[in-house]
Amino acid sequence: MSKIHIENLSKTYRSKRSRVTALEDVSLAIEQNEFVTLVGPSGCGKSTLLKIVGGLIRPSRGRLIYDGEPLLQPTRDVGIVFQEPVLLPWRATIDNVLLPAEILGLNLAQCRVRALELLKLVGLEGFESSYPRELSGGMQQRVALSRALIHNPSVLLMDEPFAALDAMTREELGFELMRIWDTHKKTVIFVTHNIVEAILLADRVVAMSPRPGRIAKIVKIDLPRPRTLDMEFTGEFKSYFDEIRAVIYSGGGAARP
């Protein structure tokens, strides 16, 4: 049984003056511990799909089965990371990481130990009591990743988490994420508009096209793990890249990777 089963999902945003069909007839099954990337030009409904999976918005039509049950409201089984770290500036690193634990009413003493482990895992040992303003963008995003993992969710939803970072930091964080995913066994749905990043990270790349947002193609990536940067220059990688780029362009038009 799939971890997340999406069936004929559509989402139309309605306001008084307009209707925007963000997703149309999207079906997708995501396996337990799978790493799936959603790639496509902006406006093709990637964030909308992620929010539906997180239970944050309701689909207009279709079903979402999560662990065998229809999902009707937010589930605490997910951790979320956004493009912006959105840390609380009045909290030190460790207390930012502990925020979900406080809200969920978990045992804070245990979570504190776990938070320190997570910070060590993302390379922020020694920065527990630093404030967000004292951290670089990449470090802040590492804190956000630790915060998403503190309550030990089985699913990680990431909406262009590295898009605001410089290329080097982005690569570094990508590899760290894969390491964490590998050791902690999470199901990851990772949104990006960077095709290289999408291929390098994924078990499967879901290529989407806009207006209305649809799944244009699902590409299984058979590169061996652990992945390395050199793989980007293999013929195999290039053929994945061309395949994905072709479907994204034919669907949407203007966007560039």
Binding site: F82, Q83, E102, I103
Partner: peptide
């Protein structure tokens, strides 16, 4: 920020928690 509100909602925070924290 809207994304912070989403994060808090995904944890089913109460309105009081959202206000205070």
């Amino acid at each position: 920020p809207a994304s912070l509100i989403d994060l808090i909602r995904s944890l089913s925070a109460t309105p009081l928690q959202t206000f205070v924290k």
